[in-house]
Amino acid sequence: MKGTYLGELEELILLTVGVLYDRAYGVSIQDEIENQVGRKLNISAVHAVLKRLEEKGFISSSMGGATAERGGRRKRFFHLTSMGKKALDEANDLRTQLYNRIPKVALQFNTLPA
């Protein structure tokens, strides 16, 4: 198993997989990120990251849901695993901890320092 370090894009996509719950597949993830975050990703990049996440054990996948516009091809749906959830929690915690440690004064931009 590769390292469990979570990259920025990986975290974003992992979060999106969680958000979309049981509708998370390549195109929907790409769509969601574009709508919510405003970031345009190429579909191949999404696939690559999903693959990496699956290899790391953060998500699992299953096939299903053929539609006509896909020419009858099935989708690969992704689901958050418990390890994925843990990774998200840890990232979230880390971020919150660090954020909380920022001195109040450093965040006060409305008063000019003396």
Binding site: Y25, G26, V27, Q30, I43, H47, M63, A66, T67, E69, R70, G71, R73, R74, K75, R76
Partner: peptide
């Protein structure tokens, strides 16, 4: 993996 890849490409 051709099914999912091609499927996504077609859907897009």
């Amino acid at each position: 993996i051709v099914e999912e890849v091609q499927g996504d490409a077609h859907e897009l």
